[in-house]
Design a protein around this nucleic acid. Structure first.
Lengths: 151, 151
DNA sequence: ATACGTGCAAATACTTTGCAGGCTT
DNA sequence: AAGCCTGCAAAGTATTTGCACGTAT
């Protein structure tokens, strides 16, 4: 079983475990979130969903995503002013990097983050619940296309 | 001259240098941003501004903040769903920590950030323009008040 | 059978825009 | 004097809510 299918099953199980009803619409949204690594927005999910459910509405997507967010089966990446993005493939908090040219968002895998969090905990005395590390810039692809964009 | 006044003057100079008009409203907004370390929202600025300019409107605040943001004299900290916050005291990108109980936002001073950025640059090949590190949790004050909130 | 979910529309919150008149330069 | 700035209102975008009907359990 590939990791995407695994996520799809995990998400279903979490819904059932918490007595949420598993409807066809929810299954479709789960599947979209489980299989898409490109951090879709609500509208992206809605557009895909509409192919199978032409009468669905954005409200349904918002509601289902809210449930999954609360169950920690999807990570919300807040981008004020251009719609939040969601990561259902890897729902634990992790760093992202956003290209301001092509608007793609990629995951970053970074060893230093744990150390950083320890340092911040010691320094602030906070009980830390969530760490958001988001970098933006221009990705190598876009740099190739337009060399004059380099900083 | 204290550092807040210095920021106030710097912001004025930047406006003048770029041929923006220095109006009483703008001066008042600059002063609010230069002197407040608590990362005010647009509405917070507007509320303070209204004491001296009862007929002003949020649009004016939005417009002035947009100018300052573009001139890099204020740092926008995006919090989707509850209004962005602004840092005019320290307008260079730096980490913040937000308390989910009292909603205060504090600066973090963290040595490891440069190293992290180098690592991310090497790993991704991005030309990095902006780094956002935002932590949320419960601050020591709120932990004292409600010990059961500890993670 | 019951309670929850769906989908429509209206409401909310935040921000941007258009425009007429006023003020800074 | 000229053009930008202000402040009002309206429009725009993202998201939430209310409600009647339908469906999963």
């Amino acid at each position: 079983m590939n990791p995407y299918e695994l996520r799809f099953i995990e998400m279903q199980n979490t819904l059932k475990k918490h007595q949420y009803k598993v409807t066809p619409q929810r299954l479709a949204i789960l599947k979209i979130l489980a299989y898409h690594t490109d951090h879709p927005k609500i509208d992206d999910i809605y557009d895909i969903l509409r192919k199978d459910f032409p009468t669905t509405s954005p409200a349904t997507v918002y509601k289902t995503v809210a449930v999954l967010k609360q169950l920690k089966e999807v990570l919300e990446i807040q981008y004020s002013g251009e719609g939040n993005r969601y990561d259902g493939v890897n729902p634990l908090s992790h760093p992202h990097i956003h290209c301001s040219q092509c608007n793609k968002v990629f995951d970053i895998h970074c060893h230093d983050v744990d150390h950083l969090i320890t340092q911040i905990t010691n320094q602030t005395g906070f009980t830390i619940h969530h760490v958001r590390i988001d970098v933006s810039g221009v990705c190598p692809e876009c740099n190739k296309k337009k060399p004059e964009n380099r900083a």
